[in-house]
Design a protein around this nucleic acid. Sequence first.
DNA 1: ACCTGAACACCGTTCAAGT
DNA 2: ACCTGAACACCGTTCAAGT
Lengths: 242, 242
Amino acid sequence: MRGAVAPAAVFYDHVMSPRREPVSRRDRPAKPPLSRAALVGAALRIMRDEGLERVTMRRLAAELDTGPAALYVYVRNAAELHGALLDALLADLPLPGPGTPSRWRDDLVELLCAYTSLLIGHPSLARSVLLLRPYGPNFLRLFDTLLGLLRAGGVRPRPAAWGVDLLLQHATATAAEQGTRSADAATEAAEEQALATAIAEADAAAYPQIAHARDELLSGPGEERLRWSLTAMIDGIAGSRA
Amino acid sequence: MRGAVAPAAVFYDHVMSPRREPVSRRDRPAKPPLSRAALVGAALRIMRDEGLERVTMRRLAAELDTGPAALYVYVRNAAELHGALLDALLADLPLPGPGTPSRWRDDLVELLCAYTSLLIGHPSLARSVLLLRPYGPNFLRLFDTLLGLLRAGGVRPRPAAWGVDLLLQHATATAAEQGTRSADAATEAAEEQALATAIAEADAAAYPQIAHARDELLSGPGEERLRWSLTAMIDGIAGSRA
DNA sequence: ACCTGAACACCGTTCAAGT
DNA sequence: ACCTGAACACCGTTCAAGT
């Protein structure tokens, strides 16, 4: 299953990359040649080590020993680079094998959970992806697989297409919420607390429903909540008369 | 119903505002005194005229005839200002009256559509709110109302609480997708096209499910799709055994 | 308690000029 | 065709010093 994805990634790389032979001049410290793959690779390293917020065009250029302007040969803008990072990450997402059709529901939840955990490791990327329309080959493969699972569940094309969008949006948003929103952990905690405090102290007369559900409102996300959300959505999608 | 919200907004303003009497010195051009309300008001004007991307701390300070540092007396940071802008906007959201309990489903969809249209007028704010945990009084009132509608539908506190989060998240994301992501309309169109092209040209052998559902994948969002999504989610939430 | 001036530490993107 | 140098046009936030 994994094997099928790699060639697509290679193809994708060629889409934007200008052809360039790796000239081997052995009398130089051999600054490696620029390429879309080299860009994405370096960006991936910086993201893993320091988070996406440090992956700026300037920083990336410095890492590759060139000027920021040179990067625009390989990516249209910073957002496109983020899309490429997502796709690189998705190469590691294990897709379900053929499987029995009756397991479509569980397969769907598992795959979406796996996608979410992958992104939870990079919350700032998830936040960026939330504002993007990814279209890389690995993303398309994920999309295709999700569509197939809904189809296996007897869902017609329209609700399946709209449903996959819905499910991926929620999975991405869940990852985006996790982890440090701000660079500063203290600021982060304060922001998280603001809502908690507002809920905890909400006047029962002014906000009766909040008062009634107070305990559940503060029950954190976690995997249980994600699974619940995905299941509820899948039920709604599968039951759709559209 | 509207009347109940205004006092809360006033209260909210006082939470962070230092007390300050409006000194009336008539021998000066009368630079109006700073206050949280003045900040939010000016930010609202800039947002309406030029979009949220122009509402920077520096620009806002210039508008108020002061330095950027002065703003930090009234807001913790730029994100908190965005939260305040959302809450100011939500003051105009018409909430449903008591109504008959049997209408809870339609009321829910209507209210969420109204919330979405409000935000569609300010897509960049929606994008910012997506990364926020709003907690202003008008947002809490909306949350409270949504909780009440689910409760009227017989949904227990836990799925209701989790469900409202889900519904609001999708409504916000829908608004965030609308309109210009980039300042430049041409860049925007190109980005939108990238996914469309990828789907339209996706190899049927590599992506069979995408090929099968191709027409539906490109069917734009629009209100029909939003209503479908909301309905599907509500069905799933209401049917939850959690 | 608040405001000012000024700095710190950065951004994405473009463009003429070179090779 | 690509890379370089340099600029354009900005950011959020902090902090010492004033009032």
